[in-house]
Design a protein around this nucleic acid. Structure first.
Lengths: 146, 146
DNA sequence: ATCATGCTTTACGTTTACGTCAACGTCAAG
DNA sequence: CTTGACGTTGACGTAAACGTAAAGCATGAT
C-alpha cells in the first residue's frame, strides 16, 4: 500500500518558514513509491531524477516526486526508461524562446499519437476479451442446461 | 508497411480441395509481420507459437498468425512475453469442463482489470499532455503579442 | 568511545528479448 | 554435381533494468 506519510527531514532547512519546502530521504521516497532505493538510484544514473545533494547525501524535493510519478506511470505503460526521460525532460524544458516552444509542441503531438495508438490496442484487446467471455458463458450455460 | 500477400507453399497439401488451409514459411511470416525469423523462433522457444513441422521445416498456419497478432499487440502494450503466453494460451484452452470455464472466466476478469488500469493511465497521460499543450500555446501567444 | 543504522559508491550478477555468427541440411536450377 | 537460396540448430553476445553483495563514511544513541 502506498500511503502519503510526511516524514520531515531532521534538518528543517535554514531557508525555512515555508513548510511546503519539505524534503525526503531516499528510503522514504522508495518506500512510499513502492520501489527499492536501488531503483531510485538507477533512475538518477540515467538522468531521470536529479535530487539535491546535501554534502554526500541525497535530498528529495517535491519536484523529484512529481518526476517519479511520471516515470512510474511511464513504466506501467511499458515505455523504456530512455523514452521516459525524453518525456519528463519535456515537462520541465526551458520554454524560453518561440523555437523551443514549437519543438515542444511537436513533441507533444508525437507523444499523443503514440498514446492514442496504445489506447486503440487496449480497446481492441478489451472488446476481444468481451467476446471471448460471452462465448465462455454460453458454453457454461450449455453445460448446465443438461 | 505490412501487407497481406498470400504466398502459397509449393506443397499444396494432399488434404487439399480446401483453399483456406493455406500455409506460410517462416520468412513469409516474418516479413509480413515486420519481425525477424529469429524473433519468430524465439517466440516458439517460449511456447508462444507451435508451428507444424513438415520434416524439419516449420510450416505456419492461420492459427499461428492469429497468435502472432496477439503476441505483437501484447508487446506494443508492454507485456512481458511470459505474461503474453498465459494470454494466448487462454484463448485456445480446452474449455471442456465447467471448472475449466470458471477458471478461464476468472482469468478474463484479471486481464480486463489490468487493461483498464492501463487505459486509465493512458487517459491521465493524454489529458496531462493536453493541459501542458495549452500552457505552451498560451506562452507562445504571449511571445508573439509583443 | 564505540556501536548500530542509514546512506553512499563500486562493481559484478541476472533476467528478458532478442541479435549475430557458425556450421550444417536440402532442394531446385544450371 | 555443384551452386545458391532458404531453412535449421546451437551457442555466444548484448542492451535494458535493475538485484545483490562488499566496503566505506556519518551520525545519533548508549
Amino acid at each position: 500500500m502506498i500511503g502519503g506519510m510526511t516524514s520531515p527531514l531532521r534538518t528543517p532547512v535554514p531557508d525555512a518558514g515555508d513548510d511546503r519546502a519539505q524534503t525526503w530521504t531516499i528510503r522514504e521516497i522508495a518506500d512510499e513509491f513502492g520501489v527499492t532505493h536501488r531503483t531510485i538510484r538507477h533512475y538518477e544514473d540515467l538522468g531521470l531524477i536529479t535530487p539535491e545533494r546535501r554534502g554526500t547525501v541525497r535530498v528529495y524535493h517535491r519536484r523529484d516526486r512529481t518526476r517519479l510519478n511520471l516515470i512510474l506511470r511511464g513504466k506501467r505503460l511499458g515505455f523504456p526508461l530512455e523514452e521516459i526521460r525524453t518525456i519528463v525532460d519535456l515537462y520541465d524544458a526551458p520554454l524560453g524562446k518561440a523555437s523551443q516552444l514549437e519543438y515542444v509542441l511537436g513533441q507533444i503531438d508525437e507523444r499523443r499519437a503514440d498514446l492514442e495508438q496504445r489506447r486503440a490496442d487496449i480497446d481492441a484487446a478489451i472488446t476481444e476479451l468481451g467476446r471471448f467471455e460471452d462465448r465462455c458463458r454460453d458454453e457454461l450455460r450449455g453445460l448446465r442446461a443438461r
